[in-house]
Amino acid sequence: MPNDELSDEYDFSQLSGGVRGKYVERYQQGTNLVLLDSDVARAFPTQESVNEALRLLIQLAERLRE
Rank of each mutant, 00 (worst) to 15 (best):
M1W: 07
M1K: 08
P2E: 09
P2N: 09
N3Q: 10
N3W: 08
D4Q: 04
D4E: 06
E5I: 01
E5N: 04
E5L: 08
E5M: 01
L6D: 02
L6F: 10
S7Y: 05
S7V: 02
S7L: 09
D8E: 13
D8W: 02
E9H: 02
E9A: 01
E9R: 06
E9G: 01
E9W: 06
Y10L: 07
Y10G: 02
Y10I: 03
D11I: 03
F12M: 15
S13H: 11
S13C: 08
S13Q: 09
S13A: 13
S13K: 12
S13I: 04
S13L: 11
Q14W: 01
Q14L: 15
Q14G: 11
Q14N: 11
Q14E: 13
L15A: 14
L15Q: 09
L15W: 13
L15N: 07
L15V: 13
S16K: 11
S16N: 07
S16F: 08
S16G: 02
S16A: 08
G17D: 05
G17F: 02
V19N: 09
V19Y: 03
V19K: 15
R20V: 11
R20N: 11
G21L: 01
K22F: 12
K22A: 15
K22C: 10
K22D: 14
Y23F: 15
Y23Q: 12
Y23K: 05
V24E: 14
V24I: 12
E25R: 07
R26A: 11
Y27L: 15
Y27W: 15
Y27V: 12
Q28W: 04
Q28F: 06
Q28P: 00
G30E: 09
G30N: 14
G30I: 02
T31A: 13
T31Q: 14
N32T: 14
N32Y: 11
N32M: 15
L33Q: 15
L33W: 10
V34Q: 14
V34I: 14
V34L: 09
V34K: 14
L35V: 15
L35D: 09
L35I: 11
D37S: 11
D37I: 00
D37R: 06
D37G: 07
S38W: 01
S38D: 13
V40A: 15
V40D: 08
A41M: 07
R42A: 13
R42G: 01
A43G: 01
A43M: 06
F44A: 04
P45M: 07
T46D: 06
T46P: 02
T46S: 15
T46H: 05
Q47Y: 12
E48H: 08
E48R: 07
S49W: 04
S49T: 13
V50F: 00
V50W: 02
N51Q: 12
N51F: 00
E52C: 02
E52M: 05
A53N: 06
A53S: 11
A53V: 00
L54A: 13
R55G: 00
R55P: 00
R55V: 03
R55L: 07
L56Y: 06
L56A: 14
L56K: 14
L57P: 03
L57I: 05
I58C: 02
I58K: 06
Q59T: 07
L60G: 03
L60M: 11
L60S: 04
A61Y: 04
E62I: 00
E62Y: 05
E62K: 12
R63S: 02
L64F: 08
L64K: 10
L64Q: 13
R65Y: 08
R65I: 01
E66V: 12
E66M: 12
